[in-house]
Design a protein around this nucleic acid. Sequence first.
DNA 1: AAAAAAGTTGCCCAGAGTGCAAACATGCAC
DNA 2: GTGCATGTTTGCACTCTGGGCAACTTTTTT
Lengths: 247, 247
Amino acid sequence: MPATPPSSADAPSASHPPADGPSRRELNKAATRQAITDAALALLRSNGPGNFTVEDIADAAGISRRTFFNYFSSTEAAIAAVTFGFLDKALQQFRLRPAGEPFLESARAALVELADPMTVAPLAELYSLGQANPQLSRSELEAWDHCTVEIITAARERLSEGAELDELYLRALAGSVISCGKAAMDVWFLQCGGSLTPESLSTLRQLLIDSMGLLGSGFARPDPAPTTTQATTPADASTATPSPDRH
Amino acid sequence: MPATPPSSADAPSASHPPADGPSRRELNKAATRQAITDAALALLRSNGPGNFTVEDIADAAGISRRTFFNYFSSTEAAIAAVTFGFLDKALQQFRLRPAGEPFLESARAALVELADPMTVAPLAELYSLGQANPQLSRSELEAWDHCTVEIITAARERLSEGAELDELYLRALAGSVISCGKAAMDVWFLQCGGSLTPESLSTLRQLLIDSMGLLGSGFARPDPAPTTTQATTPADASTATPSPDRH
DNA sequence: AAAAAAGTTGCCCAGAGTGCAAACATGCAC
DNA sequence: GTGCATGTTTGCACTCTGGGCAACTTTTTT
């Protein structure tokens, strides 16, 4: 049974309103949405990217082609919903961090929370299916970009408390954090092929931590002094930063 | 005359082969390609994004619809060619930098080279036209991502001399550099609306420099360091605002 | 000049995406 | 319950995309 929202009188209906939570309409919509992404993912698995149509998805999900387009504007959008979910979870974690915590520390913590089998599994599968597929990765890009926008918003809320906020600082930082997170995922997939074993996930966790560390240290070259986290940023101040002293 | 490649006997043909440079075929293709992007951009200007078809572009460029698809796979691809050109120029500049130079310094120099009227003009226009347009900005994202891949390649060539290269370092750095460059462009457009006056370009240059500075300093908080940073990054604030003094 | 290679075009077709209006489901008031 | 308002699904028709194919033209090679 792919999606059976329009069948009423099913589970909890007769006796009492069990909870005033989500209404039936909302439940139906959520179920249909889920059925669509499930069907899309199944077809992606079985047929490979680009070898199935919207109609195929609609049929598998038990809805009409037209209804599919009420939910998603394209097959890729339906599939990218997985990535969106993943990144939304990251954002959720980020927002849970205490406001006083340094930004990069919050980002690190939020990202590490993702290195959990249930959470990465769908992403790992998408990676393996669409890694070399431009058609598919386009929507992935959009999801990551959307996440950047969201994190800019989140960071703005957090940093705006009292201080004037620097748009460049905000955007450059948010973009870099996302890029580093993405880089860690890429490297992880490169090294572990999306395996979900505990060691693999531990590797992922470490990669995420390391990427935030690189960002926080200004990408201090690893070759000269691998031991000291003591800064000594190799970017000589003459060009990289306007003189830190007064004018 | 939009594109007149299939008309021979025109400029240099009768007397002597002036140079064995680009063949006629290559010239024709380049001309057609140019005609297409010009036409697409003109239509974007006049009709707004999404309000013209491939056929419109083909007509304006003086070619058939079918030929358009021999060059680009979609309208967006044709328009994104502008961004591609812009970013390719940045990469070109990057590769020109001496190999011994610190990575961020090379990136800074390459990016600053772009703050030139002829180069940014097309990008600025695209920004103003497509800022709020998801359809359009999708292809832009792809262009930036492509640039990231390219810069990873360039960086790998440069860093691989003798040392084992750390994939994470490479990818996180490249991604962050691109993100920061993008952030600087975004902020610039936000502040200056894509104006091409000397002051505006100077602002852009400073934003690009600042963004690389932020990256190189590990995004040291511009506000008074709260508590936890035991690794007292020496490069403190002051990277935030493009100091309004002389230069 | 003739053949070969590369490029263009028209024709055709499957599929994407959207507006519209009818049919259906749900929520709410009585 | 009955009935109405509101939200959702669906079929239909339509335009546009994207690409295979074969005929045709242009450029290059021999």
